[in-house]
Amino acid sequence: MEQFLQQIVNGISLGSIYALIALGYTMVYGIIKLINFAHGDIYMLGAYIGYFCMTHFHLGVIPSLLIAMAICTLLGVIIERIAYKPLRNATRIAVLITAIGVSLFLEYGTMFFVTANVRSYPPLKGILTQSFKLGNIVITAQQILIVCITVILMVFLQFIVKYTRIGKAMRAVSLDRDAAELMGINVDNTISFTFALGSALAGAAGILVGIYYNSINPLMGILPGLKAFVAAVFGGIGIIPGAMIGGYFIGTVEVMVAGYGNSMFKDAVVFAILILILIVKPSGLLGKETKEKV
């Protein structure tokens, strides 16, 4: 039982990261029906920006987090403006291929500048090095930090999407872009804003992973990116609460498979889930069956 609870703690920490990345995937898909494969690399860039803030400028965790989020926001918007906006009316496959191109560009561009070496975050100080014991269950301060920041960001995101004007615009564009444009909504700005939000969350996930695992490299975004994509599909792509549930679900499943089954199968199980969902309920857990618009 204790072991089970400990595995749940591990799963929730990992799931938080997937959920943060999955939110970006799902929002971008919801609004322009694009699977933004470069999203995992924004997460990687967030980890590197955090690394440079902490090692070169000796900033604390929270300032580094905010800077990483701000710079990722900017990068997200720039990528959208340069790479995706000119293809607004192109076929979806063209945009998808562009996304893969952007992803490779970010990975190997970063590798050019920072080399392919694994880097480690500087040692943490004070409260973040502590761990707490509940019976035999160990919860580290870093795990608490990850879960808290994830929850705060999700609440904040829900607030933006549900209760602000720009959130309303986002929902309108995702429902019907042409109609939204006719109603006087600036579609381009709304799409940019969506990229900005998603990238900020990915940047936050990046720096949290850096702190938690203490190891970053230019290709670190590929696998978590794909798993977050699975999480988004599991929850129902385009649906924000779905991405959160999906993230926590995938994280927990991965940990449970490693803990009770065979650790070699954990990645395979995650992708098997993707295949199963696509066969059984392609619209995802919270998705509604919709007819393809013609």
Binding site: L219, V255, G259, S263
Partner: peptide, 18 residues
């Protein structure tokens, strides 16, 4: 067992801790 580039070993470590 694990594979190169894995970063999360908490699951297997929790398992052996018992």
């Amino acid at each position: 067992a694990y594979v190169a580039k894995d970063t999360d070993f908490n699951a297997i470590l929790t398992k052996i801790k018992g």
